[in-house]
């Protein structure tokens, strides 16, 4: 675009058919790549999340350049300045909220989350008081779900044993504790997604009789009892 015309008219700040077509095609690419990654689960977890967010930002930049033509007007370019500063504030608002509330939840959470945290971090004592976390584990127990049947239906274990859920079926299962709809947490665990080939193991740090079931198919359920050592 030539800058000479820019004196008063806004003529040169606007796109051509060509720039719109380029923008459109690039945007399509930036839509389909992350979509494919998500559907096919080529990468997972935080890597995937980061990748798709990056693609979102790239697409935003593409549309800003090719559709909104930002940064092409006469100088000083106040539009660009205000977009930049607003975007900084947006990042501060979203990032700041996540940072603050996440930190808050980390420090002041419902007891379930605290239990899970203690288990995950293997914190056995706080200020000299026992937290109920097992320092070491003993026997391993396995519950297998195959063709919708739980085997064994009831597991007898001692405190600080481990219990592993194995799913042999193709469908995904979410192991939760308590009665269906009124879930309880066990040792801070609320929900354990178990798929074929991906087992989940918990440490039996709380004593008593517990019921577990598949949240997605509540008929599939079983029991386990934990006795003191």
């Amino acid at each position: 675009m030539n800058k000479k015309q820019s004196h008063h008219g806004p003529q040169n700040e606007h796109g051509t058919v060509q720039s719109y077509v380029i923008g459109f095609v690039l945007s399509l690419i930036c839509t389909f790549i992350p979509y494919y990654l998500v559907v096919e689960k080529i990468v997972t977890g935080n890597t995937l999340l980061a990748t798709i967010v990056v693609f979102g930002f790239v697409q935003m930049l593409i549309q800003i350049v090719f559709f909104l033509h930002l940064g092409r007007g006469p100088k000083p370019n106040w539009n660009l300045f205000f977009f930049g500063s607003t975007f900084t504030i947006v990042l501060a608002v979203v990032g700041g909220s996540i940072f603050i509330i996440h930190n808050l939840n980390y420090h002041m959470t419902p007891s379930d989350k605290i239990k899970k945290l203690l288990n995950d971090e293997n914190i056995q004592q706080i200020g000299g008081a026992d937290t109920g976390v097992c320092g070491q584990t003993y026997e391993s127990h396995i519950v297998t779900i195959k063709d919708g049947i739980v085997e064994p239906l009831q597991t007898e274990a001692k405190r600080c044993d481990t219990l592993t859920f194995v799913n042999e079926d193709e469908v995904e299962r979410e192991i939760t504790f308590g009665e269906h709809e009124d879930h309880e947490a066990y040792a801070g665990e609320i929900e354990l997604p178990v798929t074929r080939g991906r087992n989940k193991t918990i440490t039996l740090s709380e004593e008593g009789l517990y019921r577990f079931h598949d949240h997605l198919d509540p008929d599939i359920s079983g029991y386990f009892t934990v006795q003191s050592k």
Partner: peptide, 16 residues
Amino acid sequence: IVWIFIFTIVYMGAFV
């Protein structure tokens, strides 16, 4: 542009 982020964070984010 707002929708790009809704699609990315709300929809695709739910499947991560």
